[in-house]
Computed example of a mutant assay.
Amino acid sequence: MPKIYSKSSQAWLDNDAVAAWIFLAPALILLSLFILWPIAYLFYLSFTSGMFTSDGIHWIGLNNYWRLLSNSDFWQVIFNTIYFTLATVIPSLVIPLGLAILLNQTLPLRGLLRSVYFLPSIISLVAAGLGFRWLFQNDGAVNTLLDVIGIKAIPWLSSTVWAMPVLIILGIWKQLGFNMVVFLAGLQTIPPSRYEAAELDGANAWQKFWHITLPGLQSTLIFAIITTMIFTLRSFEQVYVMTGGGPLNSTNLMVYYIYQEAFAQFDFGYAAAAATVLFAVTLILVYLQLQTWKEES
Rank of each mutant, 00 (worst) to 15 (best):
Q76M: 13
L86S: 04
Y83F: 15
I90Y: 01
L69K: 04
L68A: 04
W75N: 06
L62Q: 02
D73S: 12
F74C: 10
I90A: 13
T88W: 03
Y65K: 01
G61K: 05
S70E: 09
S92M: 08
S70I: 13
G61N: 06
F74Q: 02
V94N: 00
V77F: 13
V94H: 00
I90M: 09
L93R: 03
I95Q: 00
F84D: 11
I90E: 01
I82S: 01
N64H: 07
A87C: 15
L93F: 03
D73A: 12
L86C: 09
N64R: 06
V77D: 02
P91H: 05
W59S: 12
I78F: 15
N71E: 08
T81N: 01
S70M: 14
H58N: 12
S72F: 07
W59P: 08
I78E: 05
I60M: 11
P96E: 12
V89M: 02
S72V: 10
W66Y: 05
N64E: 05
V77A: 03
I78Q: 07
L93Y: 04
I95C: 04
Q76G: 10
N80H: 08
Q76S: 08
I90D: 01
V94I: 15
T88I: 07
D73T: 13
W75T: 04
H58C: 10
H58L: 14
T85M: 08
N80C: 08
N71C: 11
P91A: 02
N64L: 12
L93T: 06
Y83V: 07
F74P: 09
L68V: 13
Y83R: 10
I78Y: 12
S70Q: 07
L69R: 05
S72D: 04
L62I: 14
D73H: 08
H58Y: 14
P96M: 12
H58T: 14
H58E: 14
T81I: 02
T81F: 00
Y65M: 00
V94M: 03
W75P: 06
I60V: 15
W59Q: 10
L62P: 05
F84R: 10
R67T: 14
R67F: 11
L68R: 03
W75E: 06
S72I: 07
N63K: 14
L68D: 01
L68T: 04
S72T: 08
P91I: 03
L86W: 13
T88E: 00
N63G: 14
F79C: 07
H58K: 12
L69W: 03
Y83K: 11
Q76N: 07
F79Y: 13
P96N: 09
I60D: 03
I95G: 01
V89P: 00
I95L: 09
F79K: 09
Q76E: 05
L93K: 04
N71V: 14
T81P: 02
N71Y: 13
W66S: 10
R67A: 14
P96R: 11
V77M: 06
N80F: 10
I78G: 10
